[in-house]
Design a protein around this nucleic acid. Structure first.
Lengths: 120, 120
DNA sequence: ACAATACTTTAGATCAAACTAAAATATCTG
DNA sequence: CAGATATTTTAGTTTGATCTAAAGTATTGT
């Protein structure tokens, strides 16, 4: 446990991501879909920050990057975080959201304004 | 342990203050004297933030406010912090500084030694 | 090769934290 | 009371983290 760990978990946004990948790995896009108030880019940057601090790791498969928490790196903090967000309940919520997104995709990605190459 | 605790200890400045008042209480001015790179006002503001987060408390005596850490509020984090800053060594450093300030005061009267019970 | 998908990176904007200097408050001393 | 000491508070500035939009990279499918 070092100072970087402390700064990493100080951010609510990063804690939000951390608990999303706490029990199971998740693709970056999947993580983003669970956080509709922020852009994909922002999520990616935070994942990078978390990885730099050693709190998550990822593997690649196909086009996806699957992230997961490195709980060991948090030492006693792991238990603190879990109790902070009432982990049992949170797991249920995640399962429900996953189910819902399977049967009724809301909006998909906000229609991206295609990068129109005006010239060249 | 709540989110406010995490944000509070995320700041290096606040951790610096926290360890100054870890084992013994210290007057605000005394704390400031140990941190010459910031103004007194800045130290006071951080003390206020720490107190709001429940990580320090203070008592008043004469014109002084004596602050001290509330270790219990940190739970398992207390031990993490101690190991982060190699606590045994740090205590020696504090003792040395205190000794030095006693024999070579810069200006005015040296701060009152707390160990000496003043009647009044 | 081309288009789509999945993600990262860059450049610039926004906002809050932390700082400074100065004024305010409070307490003690003579 | 005035003056000194100890600290807080306020107002304004600097700094850094985080965000967005857009462009860039990489992989997959046709």
């Amino acid at each position: 446990m070092d100072a970087d760990t402390l700064t990493a978990i100080a951010s609510p946004r990063r804690r939000e991501i951390l608990r999303l990948v706490w029990d199971d790995e998740r693709a970056a896009g999947d993580i983003h879909r669970a956080m509709p108030d922020v852009t994909f880019g922002a999520v990616s940057l935070q994942l990078k920050a978390l990885e730099k601090a050693g709190l998550v790791e990822h593997r690649r498969h196909r086009q996806h990057r699957y992230y997961r928490a490195r709980r060991a790196a948090l030492g006693p903090l792991a238990a603190e975080l879990e109790s902070m967000w009432g982990h049992a309940l949170w797991k249920l919520k995640l399962a429900a959201e996953l189910e819902e997104s399977r049967r009724g995709p809301r909006q998909g990605r906000p229609s991206r304004p295609r990068a129109t190459p005006t010239k060249d």
